[in-house]
């Protein structure tokens, strides 16, 4: 099937427009972050107000309502935050259009090579973020930390890994491409958010243990509890999705490669990541393993996902070598 060059070019333009818009949004989030009052002060207030009862009777508010948060945030920061969210939505729309154009140009779903896969993954991460904000998570000013890896990934994808729109090779011509690759890309993208939250959690607790350390970032982060829950809540959605993605992959492999599981490097690394996330869920139910250790495990899980995306695709050859790079 011929590919439409013009459409493909428009797709590339919107892709880079989306990256640029994300950079703007990221900057706005960081401005909000910089202007926001250090929640450590709030914590002090809380403790002194409810000192006798604070132990063991800590309130289990999932995410405090928006109004509660507004009180703490100065209006200037608030304005930047609101703008940042609108700009993120704009970026996501451009991003979506770029993928749609790519799909039309290539005459297939737009996740057939590594460039496109990365693009879908990033859109999933941004979308997860926006959904969280919709759920009134008091973490809006952390948006910059989520967009930073997204922008980096998209920049890398759009330059080093860029591939022109083309049909895919026979092994990929299957509706399982639609299902398997889509679920892998979106669940991986969603897992970026817990990964970021876990790293921030580690920064926060490091700083709590020793206020000298990492003060510049940590003083403006929300409470460690909040970050921990943020990571958990997204992981329990994304992990089953990722599990499903692996099962879909096995079903496809049975039809395409003659076996449902063959310890191909990509499969192996996906398995390793899966086991690490399973360990994360376990750790949260194991005394002495909650908190810091769980955060380390979650961050390690995402590190393995990134490793699988880059190292295994580009350096280690295997059946999954469909990156279309080089």
């Amino acid at each position: 099937m011929p590919t439409d060059d013009a459409l493909s070019r428009y797709s590339d333009w919107t892709y880079f427009a989306a990256v640029a818009v994300y950079v703007v949004a990221m900057t706005l989030y960081f401005v909000e972050q910089a202007l926001s009052r250090a929640p450590r002060d709030e914590a002090k207030v809380l403790v002194s107000a409810g000192a006798p009862e604070a132990e063991g009777k800590q309130r289990d508010v999932a995410f405090p309502l928006e109004q509660e948060r507004d009180v703490a945030s100065p209006p200037r920061g608030e304005r930047f935050g609101r703008m940042a969210v609108s700009v993120t939505v704009l970026g996501a729309l451009l991003h979506l259009i770029s993928l749609a154009l790519r799909g039309v140009a290539a005459g297939r779903v737009p996740w057939g090579n590594m460039y496109e896969f990365g693009s879908v993954l990033c859109l999933a991460a941004v979308t997860t973020w926006l959904v969280l904000l919709q759920r009134r998570a008091p973490v809006r000013h952390l948006g910059g930390f989520v967009l930073l890896p997204v922008v980096l990934l998209m920049f890398l994808g759009g330059t080093a890994l860029y591939t022109t729109a083309a049909p895919v090779q026979p092994a990929l011509q299957s509706y399982w491409l639609v299902i398997h690759v889509f679920t892998v890309a979106t669940s991986s993208g969603a897992l970026l958010v817990p990964g970021v939250a876990s790293v921030l959690y580690l920064i926060k607790t490091r700083n709590e243990a020793d206020p000298e350390k990492l003060a510049a970032i940590a003083s403006r982060l929300p409470a460690a509890e909040t970050l921990d829950r943020l990571a958990y809540r997204v992981t329990i959605i994304a992990f089953p999705a990722y599990t499903m993605a692996i099962i879909f992959g096995a079903i496809w492999a049975e039809a395409a490669w003659g076996r449902f599981w063959g310890w191909d490097p990509k499969e192996t690394t996906a398995f390793v990541a899966w086991v690490i996330y399973a360990a994360y869920l376990h750790s949260r139910a194991t005394a002495g393993w909650r908190g810091t250790r769980a955060a380390v495990i979650n961050a390690a899980g995402f590190a393995v996902m990134v490793f699988n995306l880059f190292f295994i695709n580009l350096v280690v050859a295997g059946l999954h070598s469909y990156a279309g790079v080089g």
Partner: peptide, 21 residues
């Protein structure tokens, strides 16, 4: 125990990795 299961899960992940490399 839960802790052993956790450690074994790590070992499993660790032991599987050389097969990819």
């Amino acid at each position: 125990s839960m802790r052993t299961a956790l450690v074994l899960l790590f070992l499993l992940a660790l032991a599987a990795m050389p097969g990819a490399l």
